[in-house]
């Protein structure tokens, strides 16, 4: 059974529809990457999954439950976490506090999970008390992901996690995504660095003008000349 099953998702911010009948499925433990040109509705689709965009028609089913147009706070409680592209940390707060905020709605003991995250991102473990605002872009991205993982989500939504990072950090970020996935977290990711992203992806989707254009395994997409030429920068 699919963890996430989006059917004919149509909607936008109130004006014209940005999403025009998109379909996407994601199985447990899968890494799925969405690529496509600017304005294709990739980020908007992700926000729609998280309840931040109004869905006018179609449905989004998560773990067997319809979550279409649910409030973000309810969706978080169901086990989906979202890392926006920008402004995805609390800059004046320390690393540790950022992670704690990720666990805000947890009633149980979240300290073991925090230890796991520090194991996953040893660099953060060295800087627990440092205000995140003083850290580099790559480190902030780790904090952002760490914050989202504090809830032990079953599905993690990542909006362009490598945007603005130096090449060294881009590679590292993708490796971390893979490691997070290995913990049993499904990952839905929008990426501009399409080739690298597809290299770690189980499956990929191409969106354009709010519609599905193509889908295949990550490997299959990288091998497809036509797709590579049109959407992956040659």
């Amino acid at each position: 059974m699919a963890l996430l099953d989006a059917t004919d998702v149509t909607g936008g911010y109130g004006g014209a529809d940005i999403l025009c009948g998109l379909n996407l499925t994601l199985s447990r433990d899968e890494v799925v990457v969405i690529v496509g040109p600017n304005g294709a509705g990739k980020s908007t689709f992700m926000k729609a999954v998280f309840g931040l965009v109004n869905v006018r028609a179609g449905s989004i089913v998560y773990d067997g439950r319809d979550i279409t147009n649910n409030k973000p706070e309810d969706i978080v409680a169901r086990g989906i976490c979202y890392v926006p592209q920008e402004r995805n940390v609390f800059p004046s707060m320390s690393v540790q506090e950022n992670l704690e905020m990720g666990a805000f709605i947890r009633k149980d003991d979240w300290r073991p999970q925090m230890e796991k995250i520090y194991e996953l991102f040893p660099r953060l473990a060295e800087r627990k008390k440092q205000p995140v605002g003083q850290m580099s872009g790559g480190e902030r991205q780790m904090v952002a992901m760490g914050r989202a993982l504090m809830l032990e989500p079953k599905l993690l939504l990542l909006d362009e996690p490598t945007a603005g990072l130096s090449p060294k950090f881009i590679d590292e970020t993708f490796r971390q995504v893979k490691r997070v996935n290995a913990l049993g977290v499904g990952i839905l990711m929008v990426e501009q660095n399409a080739k690298q992203a597809l290299a770690i992806a189980d499956r990929g989707y191409v969106f354009s003008s709010g519609q599905n254009r193509f889908e295949d395994t990550g490997r299959g997409m990288l091998a497809n000349k036509e797709i590579a030429e049109m959407f992956l920068g040659g």
Partner: peptide, 15 residues
């Protein structure tokens, strides 16, 4: 403090 820092992210985190 989190809300003061970044209102949207605080909401997303379920605060």
């Amino acid at each position: 403090r989190a809300m003061s820092d970044n209102m949207d992210l605080a909401r997303i985190s379920g605060i």
